[in-house]
Design a protein around this nucleic acid. Sequence first.
DNA 1: TTGAAAGCGCTAACAT
DNA 2: ATGTTAGCGCTTTCAA
Lengths: 341, 341
Amino acid sequence: MTTIKDIAKVAGVSITTVSRALNGYSDVNEKTRKKIMQVAKDLNYSPNTLARSLVMNKSKTIGLIVSGMTEANKKDNFTFEVLSGANDCISERDYDLVLFSTTTAKQREKTYSQLCRERRVDGAIVQGMKIDDPYLKEVIESDIPCVLIDIPIESDTVGYVTTDNVLGARKAVRHLIELGHKNIAMINGHNQAYVSIKRLEGYEKSLQEEGFPVNQSWILDGSFSEEKAYEQTLVLLRNHPEVTALFCASDLMALGAIKAAKALGMDVPRNLSVIGFDDILLSSYSTPQLSTVGQNIFQLGYQAANLLIDMLEVKTKSHVCILDTELIARESTCKAQNDQD
Amino acid sequence: MTTIKDIAKVAGVSITTVSRALNGYSDVNEKTRKKIMQVAKDLNYSPNTLARSLVMNKSKTIGLIVSGMTEANKKDNFTFEVLSGANDCISERDYDLVLFSTTTAKQREKTYSQLCRERRVDGAIVQGMKIDDPYLKEVIESDIPCVLIDIPIESDTVGYVTTDNVLGARKAVRHLIELGHKNIAMINGHNQAYVSIKRLEGYEKSLQEEGFPVNQSWILDGSFSEEKAYEQTLVLLRNHPEVTALFCASDLMALGAIKAAKALGMDVPRNLSVIGFDDILLSSYSTPQLSTVGQNIFQLGYQAANLLIDMLEVKTKSHVCILDTELIARESTCKAQNDQD
DNA sequence: TTGAAAGCGCTAACAT
DNA sequence: ATGTTAGCGCTTTCAA
């Protein structure tokens, strides 16, 4: 493997000059530069980033730390979208992406900062972590620049990217209200997720705004799981036949809810309007097609990377980025059937 | 950041001893080792893998080279499954995964071996490449150990992992034949993919085996695209009403084909049986649920990584791994309606 | 404009 | 069982 030493020898200059020429420094004679470039090409030279990183003390590498990659996550494609987005930005800005996937078990073996320091990543993006995750404390305590996805923690070295979940939830609920629904229930995700808390907040606010009471027995925990949502919806629909509309904190749960309604012989949307959150791929392929609040998960990843690299290169204004949502009305919601009229 | 030098100073030994102790060499006194371990812990030491890699001339890093990550690939989740599988194996075997996503444009800027050599990856997994891709030549010429996914090239340093596509296709066609179909058409992927060639081969073989003629006008190119398959199916169905069953080389194309049949007022499976290939997530959520030939894409990635690391660590027997498929009969195929009876 | 020399953190002969 | 020394490939003072 060719090194700058080899080039120096062939070109008849010192390694310093080669280094300077190759890195585009101005203080090198145009003629020698040409010569060096040519020799480098002839010798099929590739720089050794390991050596460079070692001496410069930065690796131009971003770690993407993903928690629980092997689980149900595949159904919503969330992780992959984030990864794609992050990867796009990272390669645009001439960094590399190394992937660390962790599990709760793994976190006991090796701490977050060990992970990052060993591989000498310049910074990290953290996705899929629950708010009670052991890594989270470390992230904050460590001095490694880090951007969290969907966890609102900010400090000198940590920022975050998330969607405006309160507003998103409000769009969903307002949509149902505009369709004439008054008895609107909610299937939420587990409460170790920040987004659950926010989506619930949006739900409650919207109802209060209209003077509708917030009925706690209409709010169930679907844990972001299709199956759990199925079961919970079954319970809900049996005990509360007055409910005509359902807001689910994720599309996957909405899909489960629709299955439950069907199992009870109900028609969606005629007997029950269902709206989800995310706009995953399945939503537009299911029957009926799912109405939902779309969030741009690719952008979540892209902006996370962008923010992080800004932080690394000290182009920093803010450490926070909030993305918008978009109401997508498809087939699973319709006007309330007004029996009283 | 703590280095072994710091540890040496505090522990009152030489850096060599520290290195040896930390790496579990036997020729170090148990007492000094204990001491060193303790100091390392106290100082919150993390080894610098950059430095280690530089001197050992291997990085314990695998490059995953993905082509065209931003495209339609999201719908079938193929890339993500491969990535998950590879990542699982790689972290089990104590390597790290760095992701390179390339496009045809990017390949002009930086060659495959440049990419690998710069980052000093020990080996590479290549996914999503077409058989006329410029990288492919480089992969073969380069001496960097490499495993290809779905491209059957083998040499001293390159191996491959793929599914038994001929047999898979035969399972699909045989399934249709067993249901009594005689006029079985095929929507294939583009022919820059090895898998297309193999699936076509399986299709033709199965027909010939039964003494059915292979009708070239029943074989169309859907380019692995849902939309293209939609269009092609429209053409096929209009021109060849005698066709009662359709084998698609991917589920996504099968979904497009079903849409086309519906658009022509046909019922699937009553008027047309459709079977796909892959068993993507959408297949079990669509209406009707798609019959298909399932391949284990996660395993494709996992085995690729496994094979590569075997090659790196010279535990090599073979450089090839062929995975099996599984027929999954769901709702989109049924018995042929025998008008003649 | 160029070169000599030091050093990034680590491993690995080769002594002792 | 431990230490001395050299060197991996590169960047960066400092001098010339």
